[in-house]
Design a protein around this nucleic acid. Structure first.
Lengths: 202, 202
DNA sequence: GCACACTAATACAGATATGTATCTGAATTC
DNA sequence: GAATTCAGATACATATCTGTATTAGTGTGC
């Protein structure tokens, strides 16, 4: 196995990536205040020295994580939007995207944590709000496009409904994560579909 | 001002109450892990000694807070239900109750924090789920009663929709708290009303 | 009013965090 | 291949938190 000798920059980037990945795992599991820099570094196979050499603080790493996740989601949605598929296919795409983006990984927990941090810390809030507003605009645009096709006039601004949509998805995701027995994935999806369809289509 | 000389039990209860109140404030502000026992005790005007003499741990106090808040909400809803008013009045009551229970105080932040704790700690989750399921049942019953009156057949179980309702309310409340400018109270209410009405009545 | 009981303060031991300052070894440059 | 530079390890000084063990002081019952 030819273990390539890394250049200095490659090595640094690798460390950064590993720290980010480790950070996502640990912070999702223990929360921001609950995770020590030591934890994160050690889980990635490094020491605190490496961490502080790559990030100014735990919070900086966290924001970086959120930014990346946000941009992934943003791009995913944009791609579906740009594809210009017929409604039916689009809906299927969205459903698939939802499953992939929100279930099974750490992303959901990170955003939940971020919300709490924002609630408490004004500086953090400012940073997070920027991301959330971008998300709202994307989703809001989506909703309006959809409803135009469906010839449905929305009773309230699409951007406001975007907030509702985010709230609903994240909240339901939480219940599903915490009590999969009482709210199985299947029911969660059916219920979301019922609300969305009633609100946006009927 | 006749400062009454307190009996031992009264004095103890007073301490307990003060610690609980202080706990609510501090935990809402800094989160569970972010608040130290010292903080909570000091803010109530006591030392850690008093705290540990009244509670087994920070988590115990937190659960107690949630239980109290839950029972308050539970009773409020039950009272509205039991009053047997005509639909219009009931809806107004609900709206008023929502405003009073969810806006303006620490309760919302505590539940958000609790959700995160539950996500991470299985033991905590068990305890919290019990409360959440009671809440779901109350709200689910509500929804079904309402829809019976409205002669609307629900597409999914009322209990599942109860999860959705909780998710929606709490999530929207968060956006409203973090960016009141982008989602003012007025819009939030209008949007919630739109979704509820579409889902439950039309 | 005296002895007891209980509430809350104080003191202590142990654990864990943070951030900086310094050091080492490997990559890069000439 | 020697000098330099930079990533990351180690060491250190400083906080802070928890939980227990002990102590002081104030209601209670005799």
């Amino acid at each position: 196995m030819p273990r390539k000798r890394l250049t200095r920059e490659e090595s640094r980037d690798q460390t950064r990536e590993r720290l980010l990945e480790s950070g996502a795992t640990i912070i999702a599991k223990k929360g921001l205040t609950g995770s020590s820099v030591e934890d994160i570094a050690a889980h990635a196979g490094y020491t605190r020295g490496a961490f502080y050499s790559n990030f100014g603080s735990k919070t900086d790493l966290f924001i970086e994580l959120l930014k990346r996740d946000h941009h992934d989601i943003q791009q995913g949605l944009q791609a579906i939007l740009d594809a210009g598929l017929p409604k039916k296919d689009m809906q299927a795409q969205l459903s698939a995207f939802y499953l992939q983006a929100y279930c099974g990984d750490t992303s959901f927990a990170l955003w939940a944590e971020a919300r709490l941090c924002a609630l408490r810390d004004p500086k953090f809030r400012t940073r997070l709000n920027a991301l959330l507003l971008e998300k709202r605009d994307t989703i809001g645009y989506f909703i309006e496009q959809f409803c135009k096709v469906m010839e449905k006039t929305l009773p309230v601004p699409g951007q406001d409904l975007a907030f509702g949509t985010m709230a609903l998805i994240d909240g339901v995701r939480f219940f599903n994560a915490c009590m999969p027995k009482e709210l199985p994935e299947e029911n969660a999806q059916a219920m979301l579909a019922a609300i969305f369809s009633a609100t946006f289509f009927d």
